[in-house]
């Protein structure tokens, strides 16, 4: 039951993009202009976030904490993320070539997507979730991010030929649409609080 609540909470009440502002750059740049690339990026984020949070959890609990070197956590987390993205990329190229080609450039870019490091920082030091719960948060967080960027791409495709003031074309309008989406997500706030599941 916990797991289900955490996944739903990560998608709706603690949406990583619309309530904590993580991973906004691809959201307002070209990626969200097209439905196909938005869903590709969304899939890649789900995949990497689901993998990195549990692995960083293991490293944190079995290496960093016992050795008493918690202050190294930022450096270790970012290096782990970079390594994992590299490994996922090689694995996919070898065994899932179709998915690999469809994701293209988005996979390596994920290393510097702050949704990943942000998700790790929320799940491990901030909320102190357990192992299974942090994996659930990783999956839910990825799905929530993908949901937001796919919705945004769908809206922007509809607006492609709309008469928009010159200055607002592109990022300006994308940010305002995101504001309206965030407003609707406020309706979910308070239903589930992931913080309560932490230790």
């Amino acid at each position: 039951m916990d797991i289900f609540l955490i996944v739903m909470g990560a998608i709706l009440t603690n949406n990583i993009l619309l309530t904590t502002f993580l991973g906004i750059c691809p959201f307002v740049s070209g990626v969200s202009g097209e439905y196909a690339s938005a869903s590709g990026m969304g899939m890649a984020v789900i995949f990497v976030l689901t993998m990195t949070i549990p692995i960083n959890w293991l490293i944190n609990h079995f290496v960093l904490q016992p050795l008493g070197v918690g202050y190294l956590s930022l450096i270790v987390f970012i290096v782990t993320i970079a390594f994992l993205v590299q490994i996922v990329e090689m694995f996919m190229k070898q065994f899932l070539p179709a998915l690999y080609t469809s994701l293209g450039i988005f996979l390596p870019l994920i290393t510097v997507n702050c949704a990943i490091l942000g998700g790790v920082l929320f799940a491990i030091p901030t909320w102190n979730l357990g192992f299974v719960q942090s994996a659930a948060y990783g999956f839910g967080g990825g799905v929530g991010w993908a949901l937001a960027i796919i919705l945004m791409a769908a809206i922007r495709e509809r607006l492609r030929f709309a008469p928009i003031p010159e200055g607002l074309k592109g990022p300006g309008l994308a940010l305002i649409i995101a504001g309206l989406m965030a407003m609707s997500f406020v309706g979910f706030s308070g239903m589930i609080n992931i913080r309560d599941f932490g230790g």
């Binding site: 619309l18 309530t19 904590t20 502002f21 607002l168 990022p171 300006g172 309008l173 994308a174 940010l175 305002i176 995101a178 504001g179 309206l180 965030a182 407003m183 406020v186």
Partner: peptide, 10 residues
């Protein structure tokens, strides 16, 4: 809240 941040930056 977050919505305001998006609107002001936009």
């Amino acid at each position: 809240i977050p919505a305001g941040a998006f609107l002001v930056v936009g």
